[in-house]
């Protein structure tokens, strides 16, 4: 459906968009699924993720509980990914240089503004993204929603 490579380029390959296009390998969670499909197929996993998000939502700041929980989660995820290969959607083999340009602009703009604010001291007058979002993260619901979204994004990443 979508071809992100330059037109007329013999090396260009379309990006797989149907199940038939996907690489089929041994996977502990069956065929390629989105985070939402995974929660429907394995409700217990959604429950564990929600409990994890709730527990993290109850923690505050640079204290031991969130540090330990996130460190343990990170190591468990690394071990799981290393020992259990995941079925992944194939990545595009080439990207259009012109098509990638908007992303380069967005990424450079973000990095530039963040670094400028950081080197200006990350103060009220020149806040970094973290300083701007700090008040929102004081709220339990925002913290839980962030962790749920973060876990979903992570699931999407490991399937790519």
């Amino acid at each position: 459906m979508t071809n992100h490579a330059d037109e007329g380029d013999p090396a260009a390959e379309p990006i797989a968009t149907t199940p038939a296009d996907l690489h089929v390998t041994a996977s502990p969670v069956g065929p390629y699924t989105t985070a939402w499909q995974l929660t429907q197929a394995k409700p217990w996993l959604a429950a564990v993720a929600l409990m994890f998000a709730t527990a993290l939502g109850l923690t505050r700041g640079l204290t031991a509980p969130p540090q330990v929980m996130l460190a343990i989660f990170g190591w468990i995820m690394c071990a799981w990914l290393a020992l259990r290969p995941m079925e992944r959607r194939p990545a595009p083999q080439r990207l259009s240089l012109v098509g990638t340009l908007p992303w380069v602009v967005v990424i450079l703009a973000f990095a530039g503004l963040e670094l400028y604010s950081f080197f200006r001291g990350s103060t009220y007058g020149h806040p970094t993204l973290s300083v701007i979002t700090d008040p929102a993260f004081e709220t339990f619901g925002v913290r839980v929603a962030f962790v749920v979204g973060w876990l979903g994004a992570g699931w999407h990443l490991v399937r790519r």
């Binding site: 992100h4 012109v98 992303w103 790519r160």
Partner: peptide
């Protein structure tokens, strides 16, 4: 814009998959 049919702009997911 990357999700439009025949778009030359990759989606963020495809961009990250390319890097990965």
């Amino acid at each position: 814009l990357g999700r439009r049919p025949d778009s030359r702009i990759p989606t963020l997911s495809d961009l990250l998959a390319y890097v990965m």
